[in-house]
Computed example of a mutant assay.
Amino acid sequence: MQSQPRVGTAPFLRNTAGCPLEGFPLAFSHRGFAPDGEENTVKAFAAAHRLGFKYLETDVHASKDGVLMVYHDDDLLRLAGDRRKVSDCTWAELSELRVAGEAIPTFDQLLETFGDSHFNVDVKEPGAARLLANAINRHGARDRVLVAAFNGLRRRKFQQLLAASAPGSPIAASPGVLGVGAATLLGRIVPLPGALYRNVDALQVPEKQGAVRVVSPKFIDHAHSAGLQVHVWVINEAAQMHRLLDMGVDGIMSDRADVLAGVMDERGYWPQSGGSGTDHA
């Protein structure tokens, strides 16, 4: 199997030239490994970590009293059985709730508990942007975080906040819905304009959006020409993972961390703790 070149320069992307995972496609555990429904909990991330994952995808909200909480939905009903929104609850109130028997963690807790891990963070609402910037600065974690948001304005607000606190120290990012949509339309026919994507490092996309195919060899080539990696979500079947890796994607996110780890191991890309692209250590 031939290693494929990885583009991008952000420290978060440890699979670029001269980095410990050079030539590897990255494996992301989506909300941790949660077969019993305990998504986005310390237990779920610990399970993924034990499987060898050092790239963990997660989501953040702001509590009513300004604590950055790790949680996906706007409201607490689906996972915690509470009809309130995350933003309507204080940290103390949220700490009493349980997701499949597990506590809802703070983002600071994740950074501290998994000190060797990288976090792909979806900023779920505007109030979380400043809290995330503060947490990253507090922990010196700029090289460990990629920020994403379906709302591109929210992602740009975060980048502005972080730039104001430490000019010249950018952080990895992926575009929102409009940026991905433009890349989907343009990337099928022409190289992507680098100026349009100068503040992002990866296109994080579904393989298909409805009936529209997003990821194709031409799309990947055009993204690479613009200096962007292509990470695909959420892929849970081994055959689909193999097909995308053969196509040349730079990363895969999956709810089935066990399946993705097996595929990566089969292809010589595991573990992803360090080493080089030659010894795969």
Rank of each mutant, 00 (worst) to 15 (best):
S3Q: 12
G8H: 13
T9W: 14
P11E: 09
R14V: 15
L21F: 11
A27L: 08
A27T: 05
F33S: 13
D36F: 06
A47I: 02
F53R: 02
S63M: 01
D65L: 02
H72G: 11
D74P: 02
D74A: 05
D82F: 08
S87D: 09
C89T: 03
W91R: 13
S95R: 05
L97W: 03
G101D: 08
P105W: 06
T106Y: 11
L111V: 05
T113W: 03
G115E: 14
K124W: 01
P126T: 03
G127R: 00
G127Q: 01
R142L: 15
N151W: 03
G152Q: 14
R155L: 14
K157W: 10
F158P: 04
A163R: 05
A164W: 07
S165A: 15
P167T: 07
P167D: 13
G168E: 13
A173S: 15
P175C: 13
G176M: 09
G176Y: 04
A183E: 00
L185E: 05
I189H: 08
G194F: 09
A195K: 11
L203P: 00
P206K: 14
A211C: 00
V212P: 00
R213Q: 15
P217E: 05
S225D: 14
G227W: 11
G227C: 10
G227S: 10
W233T: 03
I235H: 07
A238I: 09
A238C: 08
A238R: 12
A239C: 06
L245Y: 07
L245K: 05
G248D: 00
G251E: 02
R256C: 01
A257R: 07
A261F: 04
A261K: 04
M264W: 13
D265P: 03
Y269V: 10
G275D: 06
G277I: 08
A281S: 14
